[in-house]
Amino acid sequence: MTAMKHFDITYHGETVTLADLPEYRKFYAKLASGQWEPRTFRALSDHLGPDVTYIDIGGWIGVTPFWASKRAKRVLVVEPDPKCREILNSLLPLYPNVTLLESALSPEDCIKLNAVEGFGSSETSALAIGDGASVEVQGCSMKKLLKTAGPGPLFVKIDIEGYEYVIARELKALDAPQVKGVQLAVHPALYEKTQTGPALFRRGKALLATFRLARLFERLERQTTVGKYPSLVTYLSQGIALAPTPRGADILFLNRATPLQSSVPDHTLSGQ
């Protein structure tokens, strides 16, 4: 097998080595210009540090986890997409503080992963959407993931293309003292596609489910802004209820207290 080519790219203040593949070059230009998810990198810049373990659930081709490896003590990447896993594995030798878990966040031992626009795109989902290829992948529960991460403080980013609605109860495990913060991407348009019935009913389901996700945690406090929207009410009304197609957003939750440095015994660290 021919070795995958790599190249260096600078974005949001860090130079990162990524896979040099033609299908991503247009995206890389957007990334280098700072136009891709600036709020995500702002949150990572604010909340990562040399004492923080970063968990990236839905690591895609490594754009956020490898960038974060420059700022965090340790990085855990959860990625089930077979093409993305190949890309990530080719880069891992360059990032000694990054660990890849080749699985999907799920309480199930095995789930079906669907490629909406082919594997390797950013839209692979465990939701029953699209008519592309599919593959069975291993599941990893949040409890197991937190045990692997070990002592806090932890910062977690979740971007799983609509599956966040299905496993909301699983996400509740993050409402824990060692978790410093969570950035949760919500995809109401994808969730709406999985619903049945009249259009107004499906929109209402997506609206209610997003509201519940925004109020998911007790220890972790939702920030005033939701993505580019000044408040949750504005997002729910303008971004979902009144929008022709519901718009996605990132919801940032932060611990109201100082995260515990160690809330699990050291022997729970992976490999021990």
Results as ranks from 00 to 15, higher is better:
A3T: 15
P82C: 01
L184R: 05
P177G: 10
V75H: 02
P153S: 05
G248C: 12
E161D: 07
L232W: 05
Q178N: 10
I129C: 09
Q35W: 10
D131G: 07
G58E: 04
V166H: 09
G49C: 03
S33D: 13
L127E: 05
T258W: 10
V75S: 01
R42I: 05
G34I: 03
G62S: 08
L254A: 08
Q272P: 13
A185L: 09
E161F: 10
L242S: 08
V78L: 07
T64W: 00
L190N: 10
K180T: 02
E108A: 15
E218T: 14
G152E: 05
G181E: 01
P80Q: 00
N114L: 06
L269C: 08
G152F: 07
I251G: 10
L154P: 00
L92D: 03
G204R: 11
L44I: 02
E192A: 07
D109F: 10
F211H: 08
T2I: 14
M1A: 11
E108D: 15
L100T: 07
R42A: 14
E221Y: 08
E14D: 09
P230L: 03
L76C: 01
D250G: 06
C84Q: 09
K193Y: 11
R219V: 06
L76F: 04
N89H: 12
L190A: 11
V77T: 06
A199D: 15
G58M: 02
V16A: 11
V77C: 04
P198V: 02
R219G: 09
L171P: 04
F211C: 02
F253H: 03
L232I: 05
A149C: 02
S262L: 08
T15W: 00
L213K: 00
T15Y: 04
A173R: 12
R222D: 06
S106Y: 10
G204V: 03
G130Y: 01
R247A: 13
G59R: 05
